[in-house]
Amino acid sequence: MNHLSPPNFKHQTIKPNSTLLVIGGCGGIGFGVVEQALALGVKVVVMDLAIAGAQRDISAVSHFIAVDLRDKTSIVAAFAMVESLDITFDSVVISSGYTLGSEPISTLDIDKFDDVMSGNLRGPVIALQYVSKYLSQHASIVLLSTAIGQIGSVGYAAYGAAKSGLNAITRILAAELSPAHRVNAIAPGAVDTAFIRGGYASGAKESGSALRFNVEEYNKKIPLGRMANIDDVIGPILFLLSDSARYITGQVIHVNGGGLMRD
């Protein structure tokens, strides 16, 4: 058996002075991860849409690199920038995600379906192809999934299918990159961010009434009685990036206040 030094259980979070890449780092959850990582003394590189970067105060990050996950050329250019900067990553979080409204399959706009699948599944897979070349020893990856693919949310065929596909990618990539690297996913339920109001990059506000669903009705179905806030999701992400999670890989962790309970 390989000898392992015991983890430092006082620090069940990402290591200070490590380097973190957050793809989708200007969205609600992604930016929350960025802020907490910076507060912990982590060097952070953010990739996101140029318009999203312009809307955030990202002056404290090491580098901002514009990328559109729907466009392979844009992804290639983003990682060419990583190459030119000579960066390796100790941790990677892909927290990007968007949908184009709610529409039943019977009347589904296939062009919108393709767009959402491209940005939420195809793009992250291409990004993972490239990022694997820039991982330091024992680097950890966390992908942001969703409970929607498991609970059958009416109208979210593209988003649910894409994120369910990302769950499969999590398991497959974990097997492919082991034992050198760990890959896991966090699957939140509804989170109080701009996403539930139309999406941050689309100009949606981060507070106010939700556009996508009835919050009061949603909360009645949650055993813990409320919708998640950003911190409820950031904590598990940072834990999975820590040494305390060193024996966890290939898992999709559901963070939803009990709204979905499963093995």
Results as ranks from 00 to 15, higher is better:
111 D>P: 09
79 F>D: 02
91 S>L: 07
50 A>P: 05
53 G>T: 07
58 I>M: 07
78 A>P: 05
58 I>D: 04
68 D>A: 13
78 A>V: 13
61 V>F: 01
71 D>S: 07
97 G>P: 01
113 F>C: 07
46 V>Q: 00
92 V>I: 10
100 L>C: 10
84 S>W: 08
90 D>C: 09
56 R>A: 01
63 H>K: 10
106 S>Q: 10
69 L>W: 02
89 F>H: 01
88 T>P: 04
51 I>V: 15
83 E>T: 15
64 F>H: 01
78 A>T: 11
51 I>W: 04
60 A>N: 06
80 A>E: 15
52 A>C: 04
50 A>G: 08
101 G>H: 02
76 V>D: 11
89 F>T: 05
86 D>K: 12
111 D>C: 11
96 S>V: 12
61 V>E: 00
86 D>F: 06
55 Q>F: 11
74 S>F: 05
85 L>W: 12
57 D>N: 09
88 T>G: 10
113 F>V: 08
106 S>P: 08
64 F>Y: 08
107 T>Y: 01
58 I>R: 01
115 D>M: 13
82 V>S: 02
55 Q>D: 08
84 S>V: 14
54 A>R: 12
71 D>K: 07
103 E>W: 05
83 E>A: 14
59 S>H: 10
76 V>F: 10
104 P>D: 00
64 F>I: 02
69 L>S: 07
56 R>V: 04
77 A>C: 12
72 K>H: 14
79 F>C: 03
110 I>D: 10
86 D>S: 14
90 D>A: 11
46 V>P: 00
104 P>I: 03
50 A>I: 09
69 L>K: 03
63 H>G: 03
103 E>H: 09
61 V>C: 04
77 A>E: 09
80 A>R: 15
68 D>K: 10
97 G>L: 02
103 E>A: 08
48 D>N: 03
87 I>L: 15
48 D>I: 02
110 I>P: 07
92 V>C: 02
58 I>G: 05
109 D>H: 04
108 L>M: 13
53 G>F: 06
61 V>T: 05
55 Q>C: 07
81 M>T: 15
104 P>W: 00
63 H>R: 09
57 D>C: 05
92 V>G: 00
95 S>K: 03
77 A>T: 14
68 D>S: 13
60 A>T: 03
82 V>T: 07
47 M>W: 01
79 F>S: 02
79 F>G: 02
96 S>A: 15
60 A>W: 01
79 F>E: 01
96 S>G: 13
68 D>V: 09
